[in-house]
């Protein structure tokens, strides 16, 4: 319990100090663009605890969830098979490298054009953007499986399908997991940007609308909300990863 408290203090004192600093420095601010943190905080309470959550946060998160849980598993499946075949890699790698070089957010206008400005185009944009980081990590993870482990699998007569899903993918899980994490971050960015371009609701839309109508305090609350959400997602991801990859940390002798 005490150790937990200590860990919390170590990892949070800097945030607290910076917030206090911001609070203090902005307290008497008359700048239109840098309102006092106290005002932002009280507006934050009005906006997000929890008045607009159902209208502006949940739909965004739903889009992210739908896009992520379509794009990432698909990338895992396709990447695992591409990783197996050298020929397939040669054929597809120029294509993959081309598309991965395009920032996910740049695809948003195309999908708005194709699917309109509804949630559908946002979900597709997220799914596509999420696809590539996981795809590339999975290809690499599957391609670089340990030769000894593969010999053992062959000696036990595992089929190539069995050794893919029972040996190559699990042994590459740490690398695949990094890809999934990058995908989540990219998905989050695309979620916001897709709402900044022509959406009526959602956190991105809220923030950009506030900015355009000079409601600077509202804009700040939107930005802070985004930061908090992004942070929470990362923490949740890492908690799950830590559990799922306990073996990897144990094997590497990592304690925390």
């Amino acid at each position: 319990m005490l150790a937990l408290l200590r860990r919390f203090l170590i990892s949070s004192w800097l945030v607290v100090v910076l917030l206090l600093f911001w609070w203090k420095v902005s307290a008497n601010s008359e700048s239109y663009f840098w309102p006092p943190l106290s005002q932002i905080a009280s507006q934050f309470k009005t906006n997000w605890l929890f008045a607009n959550v159902a209208d502006d946060v949940l739909p965004s998160l739903k889009n992210l969830a739908v896009g992520y849980f379509i794009g990432a598993p698909l990338a895992l499946f396709v990447g695992a098979h591409l990783g197996l075949s050298e020929i397939a890699q040669k054929i597809f790698s120029p294509l993959v490298n081309f598309f991965r070089s395009i920032p996910g957010v740049a695809l948003v206008p195309i999908f708005i054009m194709l699917f309109g400005i509804g949630d559908q185009s946002r979900r597709v944009s997220i799914a596509v953007a999420v696809f590539f980081p996981t795809l590339i990590a999975t290809i690499e993870a599957v391609r670089t499986s340990d030769a000894v482990l593969l010999d053992v699998s062959r000696s036990f007569r595992f089929s190539s399908f069995q050794s893919l899903w029972r040996v190559r993918v699990p042994s590459g899980a740490p690398m695949i997991s990094s890809g999934l994490q990058v995908s989540l971050q990219v998905g989050f960015i695309v979620m916001i940007v897709s709402e900044m371009l022509g959406a009526f609701r959602g956190l991105g839309a809220f923030t950009v609308e506030a900015q355009q109508s000079f409601m600077i305090i509202d804009m700040w609350t939107g930005i802070i909300m985004l930061g908090i959400l992004g942070y929470i997602f990362n923490v949740i991801f890492e908690l799950i990863e830590k559990r799922a990859l306990r073996w990897y940390r144990g094997q590497k002798g990592l304690t925390s």
């Binding site: 000894v148 482990l149 010999d151 053992v152 042994s171 899980a173 073996w247 990897y248 094997q251």
Partner: peptide, 11 residues
């Protein structure tokens, strides 16, 4: 095989 650290599934 010799390399027991690599021939068992660590997960």
């Amino acid at each position: 095989l010799q390399e027991y650290t690599r021939s068992l599934m660590p997960w």
